[in-house]
Design a protein around this nucleic acid. Structure first.
Lengths: 157, 157
DNA sequence: GTCGCTGCAAAGTCTTTGCAGAGAG
DNA sequence: CTCTCTGCAAAGACTTTGCAGCGAC
């Protein structure tokens, strides 16, 4: 809630602190695996599938040998705590990203799968208006635009 | 391609015609099952899961006994032909709706699952702008707003 | 008639769960 | 110490596929 421009500036310590608080509040334990998962998400600009995250962690912390089941369990946990958000684009399954960042929406390349993020104040405002008009109390939203990225356009598809 | 304001007025005959054309163009066959699926989607305002559609068809045409596999196969077919669009909201799996309607977005009630549709010209325009700015060629988009519908708000949650 | 379509059931994916030992608090 | 986590593997849920007979054209 500080600057509007801190997309990724919320630092890791901060995030980790939040995580530990949430764990404590719920009588849950802080484990190496859980930290590795949080860190993996933090250090990746990508939107990760559980499997991708699993690979990532296996590479960075091979000694841990964290199991895929733990990844799934932790991701659900993180999602319940609102620390991560899950997205599901088309058929490609569920992907996760840190939810602590500023709210943003996604543009997805149909060819190469590239995901770009953006924020637009006007759209956000409009969404509130529309939701109210329909009598809803807005909680959240997600928006995806599908297209062909500059790169793939050049390649001529 | 006619009027911009024919959200649901594109009648069934029309749709069926399109479907038959597409089938013909691709050397595919028009079958009772395929028609039943198209009709099921047409007659439902809902966004249907493959399983829901299966149930629906079993009720309407019990004699057909259309198998779930056929539903999946036909839905993919219809999706490839751009006659239907698939959505995936959160964890609840994939849902399908007729894509021949005017483009629209969705507001979803987190409590009861009610889905309302809406269209907003300004947002559509903005989306084009943003996409261009990022160098993408926009093909499609989807937007979901999550909230609590009027009804559920009254019930006090 | 030909060749694609269908239903069934079997095979795949992806995700979740049960359990016994390991580890955080 | 206690009580939660973890890894493994088995179980589930959801989709897709192979096959032999059926049906559109």
């Amino acid at each position: 809630m500080q600057s509007e421009f801190n997309e990724k500036t919320k630092d890791y310590e901060n995030l980790l602190g939040d995580f530990k608080d949430i764990l404590k509040k719920n009588n849950l334990k802080f484990t190496v695996q859980r930290e590795a998962i949080l860190e993996g998400l933090y250090n990746s600009d990508e939107h990760l599938s559980p499997e991708a995250l699993h690979h990532l962690i296996q590479k960075k912390n091979p000694d841990l040998g964290a199991g895929i089941a733990t990844i799934y369990r932790t991701l659900s946990l993180l999602e319940d705590s609102n620390l991560v958000t899950s997205l599901s684009f088309g058929a490609s399954g569920k992907k996760y990203e840190l939810g602590a960042k500023q709210h943003h929406d996604h543009v997805i390349c149909n060819e190469c799968g590239l995901i770009q993020e953006f924020v637009d104040e006007e759209i956000e405002k409009k969404q509130h208006e529309i939701t109210q008009k329909l009598g809803f109390k807005m909680l959240d939203h997600s928006m995806q635009i599908y297209g062909i990225c500059a790169n793939c356009q050049e390649k001529g598809i």
